[in-house]
């Protein structure tokens, strides 16, 4: 009887059965009127400006909607810490975050989106299309292979301010759709 060949991944030790499968999204509001919008910038170049521009558009287009938190993740490679998620939960009704524009930050942006949903906050994650595979790999890892996020064309970091504003205009309707009942979940 030959020896068995050992598995080098240790995946069996992770007991996938014990890990949560399937993400229940936070309940969607019918619209953004009167809601508090949170922006979480992941420090990638142009992320702060893109989020701010989208925030402005949402505030202008939805009565009494306003941006109440615009904070920055301490580490773009890691998911947002619990205290930061907690702050958004206390001070916002919906969150927009990104931009997934690198190897680790795209994956962790999706992880953040899932954390926000689990905290009861509808979230819109914006990720560059060049990193969609790694973003989806993270969603699968978190037991939410069908997690929806917003994909925007790569690259974002080289856009000038005017181009970022244009990009924000194009993305704003997608953000609204994902954050509200129009998401059709």
């Amino acid at each position: 009887m030959p020896n068995a060949i050992l598995d080098p991944t240790g995946r069996a030790d992770f007991a996938p059965a014990a890990r949560p499968r399937g993400l229940v999204l936070a309940p969607r509001p019918p619209g953004l009127a009167g809601l508090r919008v949170g922006l979480m910038n992941n420090t990638k170049h142009n992320a702060a400006l893109l989020l701010a521009e989208i925030g402005k558009l949402l505030a202008a287009e939805h009565a009494e909607a306003s941006v109440t938190v615009a904070d920055t993740k301490p580490n773009f490679a890691a998911p947002a810490p619990a205290d930061l998620i907690g702050r958004y939960r206390r001070e916002c009704d919906v969150v927009i975050t990104g931009v997934g524009d690198c190897g680790s930050c795209s994956a962790s942006a999706v992880a953040d989106g899932i954390l926000f949903e689990q905290a009861g906050l509808p979230a819109a994650v914006i990720c560059s299309d060049a990193f969609a595979v790694t973003a989806t790999a993270m969603a699968e890892l978190r037991g939410a292979p069908d997690y929806r996020y917003i994909v925007t064309e790569h690259p974002v970091a080289v856009l000038d301010a005017e181009q970022v504003r244009e990009r924000a205009k194009r993305l704003a309707p997608e953000v609204v759709a994902l954050l509200t009942a129009r998401a059709g979940q």
Binding site: G10, G103, S106, F131, V133, T134, A137, L141
Partner: peptide, 18 residues
């Protein structure tokens, strides 16, 4: 490299984005 690939599951074109 194999620990990173196999244990962390960081494989090219997936979680590895070189």
């Amino acid at each position: 490299g194999l620990i990173v690939r196999n244990v962390y599951g960081i494989r090219p074109h997936e979680l590895e984005q070189a």
